[in-house]
């Protein structure tokens, strides 16, 4: 009888651990999907922003072209998650460059439509940064569960693979001083 109870207890604990691992893996996937959605929102803002800025910006043609080119690249179908993130990372720097460059153009700063776009973009940038942090935290929790005993046994048997952390690019870590920029 005791033996039977022990077996049932082990099975119950095993099922609980398995479910925890599954829910943590799903958590990572859900957050990754949020990042994808936020990146799409970011790409949707770019055409308007570029069109409005093109008229006035004389020295930043290179930046504008780079942003347009990377957006087109990101819009391609069938990109792997790694490719999506790589393009998003590459886009961050020229996009922030554009946001800072607006400072040199009083006519752009006076344009309410551009300022509204900049606010939205800034909001999305911060949401993307938050989503990356949330993803990294979820991946850390998942990887910890994978590696810690006794859940490591279940993770091994059911092939719960490791997940990679995002590298948070340096440019994203320090916020650009958009406060000054938006002061009109």
């Amino acid at each position: 009888m005791e033996f039977l109870i022990a077996i049932v207890a082990v099975v119950v604990v095993g099922v609980l651990i398995y479910n925890t691992l599954v829910s943590r893996r799903n958590q990572c996937d859900n957050i990754f999907a949020s990042i994808d959605a936020l990146l799409k929102k970011r790409y949707n803002l770019i055409p308007n922003l570029v069109t409005l800025m093109k008229e006035s910006m004389t020295y930043e043609k290179g930046l504008l072209e780079k942003v347009t080119e990377l957006r087109a690249k990101a819009m391609q179908p069938d990109l792997t998650p790694e490719q999506k993130i790589a393009i998003a990372d590459e886009l961050t720097q020229p996009l922030h460059g554009l946001m800072v460059a607006v400072e040199n153009y009083p006519e752009l700063k006076a344009n309410e439509q551009i300022m509204q776009l900049m606010r939205s973009l800034n909001e999305i940038e911060e949401q993307i940064a938050a989503a990356r942090r949330a993803y990294n935290q979820a991946v850390t929790d998942y990887n910890n569960a994978r590696q810690m005993f006794p859940s490591s046994l279940i993770a091994g048997w059911f092939h719960f693979g490791a997940k990679e952390l995002f590298e948070i690019p340096e440019v994203e870590r320090k916020n650009i001083d958009i406060k000054e920029l938006l002061k009109q």
Binding site: Q27, I31, S34, E126, Q127, A130, A131, R133, A134, Q137, A138
Partner: peptide, 11 residues
């Protein structure tokens, strides 16, 4: 409900 929102608010 949403971990992304929690990270967005709690910088």
């Amino acid at each position: 409900d949403d971990p992304v929102e929690a990270h967005y608010l709690l910088t």
